[in-house]
Simulated scan of single mutants.
Amino acid sequence: MTSSPSPADTSDIAQAPLLSVNALSERLVTQLVDEAASLRIAISRTEAGTVIADAGVDAPGSLDAGVLIARICMGGLGRVSTRMSAENTPLWPVMIDVQTSWPVLACLGSQYAGWSLSATKEQTGGKKFFSLGSGPARALAGKEDLFTELGYRDRHDHGALVLEVDRLPPQVIVDKVVNDCGLAPERLTLIVTPTHSVAGTVQVVARVVEVALHKTHVLGVDLAEVVEGSGCAPLPPPAPDGIAAMGRTNDAILYGGRVHLTVQHDAVARRLAAELPSSNARDYGRPFADIFTAFNYDFYQIDPALFAPAEVWISSLESGATYHGGKVDAALLQAQWGAP
């Protein structure tokens, strides 16, 4: 009797150094700039030539812009699209679908909003500025410990960074990103997507697989286990209030997000199916905006287990089995957003 072979190391961590997330997303950035008028975004340049793409501050932005920005965020290694949900599964009329064959590199090496960028009012000459940077330029700067864990740094002569904030970045932030990324100013593109904008709503909800990867990392699972990732989440209507908008985008994933991951080993698949869903969290069951307000607008007081998709399927290459955990809460979403 012969034993089954162990699954090969098909993880993107092992193969990541072969790819540049900035090179792969460069054509998408070019498309964003070239098609700015039809995408309803505004393009400006600093005196040194850095491109600023306004996708929701003064320009209205659009759903199509949000989809393209989400693809840029994933370093050109993910597919993002929208669809109308089927009549017999009326979770919400419009859904966002995400798929990547490079889940660790696309989601954590690029899409994750992990670069903290801030400036004092003295530095800006006005009011203080804060934003988390996401997208491929993070891998050029390598300011986060995460890149040491991933064993990945990018090298490319162009870069793009997405800022989820309601104002355009001051020059001091532009200069910092340029210097930390080692780029010529004219070869950096900064894309601004407020959460309350259409494009901002899209690009945040398109993080449904990334949220699953981040929770996997928080659980201490070896990221080399994860070899494929797909997911979907409902696309809520934008809210004019920043806290409400953040609540809606988080609820879309925490209570409506569905993710399928393929991992190397059976034991990992079993564990993730049991521990990954958001329902494991102490704070689960209330709208995110209510939770955030109750903790005095401090993310760090919220149980980190909450930041996860609502429902998961985890498939094992070792056994061929698929394990399921969690469930969506359509009633909570519909009560917050209005019936579909």
Rank of each mutant, 00 (worst) to 15 (best):
Y112T: 12
Q336N: 11
F147H: 10
P287G: 05
Q171L: 11
A273F: 04
D166L: 02
D97V: 05
V98C: 07
L39Q: 00
L132T: 08
G75F: 04
T2P: 15
S101K: 12
V67G: 10
I173C: 11
G256I: 01
E26Y: 03
S116V: 10
L261R: 03
A106T: 08
E26S: 13
T193G: 12
P309F: 03
G126T: 12
R153E: 00
D34M: 06
D54A: 09
T82F: 02
E186M: 00
S38A: 14
L168H: 10
I314Q: 07
E144F: 06
V218W: 11
L332N: 05
M84P: 00
R207G: 15
C73R: 14
G49D: 06
Q264M: 14
G133N: 13
L272E: 00
T262C: 03
P234F: 00
S197D: 03
A8Y: 04
I69H: 04
P234K: 01
A331H: 10
R71F: 03
P237N: 04
T262N: 02
V162M: 02
E122W: 11
A267V: 01
Q264R: 15
G142S: 13
C107L: 08
G285N: 11
V204E: 02
Q31E: 13
A113R: 01
A267S: 10
P60W: 00
G159Y: 06
E47M: 04
K215Y: 01
G326R: 10
D97W: 06
G182D: 08
L235R: 11
V67A: 03
I191S: 02
Y112E: 01
E210A: 06
F295D: 06
T322E: 05
C181P: 09
E311R: 15
